[in-house]
């Protein structure tokens, strides 16, 4: 009985295997190419940027602990270290860092809303709003951080 069943179904089994083998599966060699070829909606960009900013921020946290370590060596060592961080170049880098923090925070709020507050219905407008709020806060922070330099330019 079992053998009969197998024989009857053999063409179908072979067919199904054949069609299965034709399905495109995960290709490790063209991994990056394939990922880039996908059509990207706002959510995909949010996901990509959330990842990049997240990795950068954890890297910065390590750097931050290292850069504050002279606190244990007293005032002179700390002030010396801080001198290099208050140059305009480093302040500009800090400003860019704020952009990373902003995106990760605002998109993080968006993710929480999508997960817990029915945000799947309005996630696209949330993405746009997070950019609007982010750019405004970024510019505001620039004015606050470089207020001294802006004052010099005004004179």
């Amino acid at each position: 009985m079992l053998i009969l069943c197998l024989i009857i179904n053999l063409p179908f089994i072979l067919m199904s295997q054949n069609s299965y083998s034709k399905i495109k599966t995960f290709d490790q060699k063209n991994w990056v190419k394939e990922n880039l070829s996908y059509k990207k909606d706002t959510g995909s960009w949010a996901w990509i940027l959330h990842r990049i900013t997240g990795v950068a921020l954890i890297g910065y946290l390590f750097l931050h602990i290292y850069s504050l370590s002279p606190l244990t060596q007293g005032e002179a060592a700390f002030t010396d270290k801080m001198k290099s961080f208050t140059t305009p170049f480093f302040m500009f880098i800090e400003w860019l860092l704020f952009a990373f923090v902003l995106f990760h925070s605002l998109n993080g709020i968006r993710i929480v809303l999508v997960d817990w507050a029915d945000g799947a219905k309005y996630h696209r407008s949330l993405y746009v709003w997070s950019w609007i709020v982010g750019v405004i806060l970024f510019v505001m922070m620039g004015v606050i951080m470089f207020s001294y330099e802006i004052g010099l330019l005004a004179k």
Partner: peptide, 18 residues
């Protein structure tokens, strides 16, 4: 953190403030 560190440049970057 950001308000404390950047509202006033001294508060973020001087040893005495820390």
């Amino acid at each position: 953190h950001y308000i404390l560190m950047h509202y006033n440049p001294d508060s973020g970057h001087t040893y005495q403030a820390v």
